[in-house]
Design a protein around this nucleic acid. Structure first.
Lengths: 120, 120
DNA sequence: GACGGTACGCACCTCGGGGTGAGTACCGCA
DNA sequence: TGCGGTACTCACCCCGAGGTGCGTACCGTC
């Protein structure tokens, strides 16, 4: 998806949740917003090394449509937009925490490298 | 991926977990195996309406490499292979349950349709 | 006057995830 | 004798997710 939201018939809850998180950066965006609270566009971009601006905008728009993030636009001269999690975003993140723990164990188990940005 | 496992550097635990679940049917396979315990190839296929055999084999192989599923081959004349979850698969599924719950709420919230196969 | 920053929109292109369909060795059953 | 089932493998193709790059309106500042 990422360009075309499914919101279609799902097999089960996992499917529905994955639909919302599918996209290379969705989960990372959730995580960043979860760790830092409220972030501006450029701050998010700096927090996700490697993400393209197009993708960030695209993902943020979809997540806004999905009711995961709040998008607050300040009509000031240098554009300023702040992103934060909605209650649904927060609850989804809570669900993701279980995944994060499992992933952590897996990382240690297989001895994979980890990209530390600043807070992750 | 699905053909080329990353196992590469991860941003965080979520990323690592998502890597293992990324793939159109991975999570569904986990779920099927979780609900039915041990399944044969054809049983899995029947449980996942729409999956192609190629994808099933491919995903199962990767999940075996990732240590999520056990693959037991019986050298009998009509081929017989049984798939079941390893302890890591079980624990991953536990993490997925949180996602499933969230997804369920989302399904009800947005009023999306759901494909009921037989037990999901 | 030029450059950098902010938050994007748009066009173009690539690459690989995933689908389709055929082939395989062997058996049971009608 | 031929069809269907088991568990695949292999070859080919397609589409869309995601990357790259350029343009924008406006400002501060150097």
């Amino acid at each position: 998806m990422a360009t075309s939201a499914r919101r279609g018939p799902y097999f089960c809850g996992v499917d529905a949740a994955m639909d919302v998180v599918s996209g290379k950066w969705k989960s990372l965006i959730l995580w960043e917003l979860h760790e830092h609270g409220t972030l501006r566009f450029a701050e998010l971009r700096r927090g996700l090394p490697g993400v393209s601006e197009k993708m960030l905008v695209q993902h943020l728009r979809e997540m806004e449509e999905d009711g995961l993030v709040n998008r607050e636009v300040y009509p000031v001269v240098p554009p300023k937009v702040e992103y934060s999690l909605t209650e649904h975003g927060v609850s989804l993140n809570a669900a993701l925490e279980a995944m994060a723990l499992w992933g952590q164990e897996r990382i240690e188990r297989i001895g994979a490298e980890k990209i530390s940005t600043e807070a992750a």
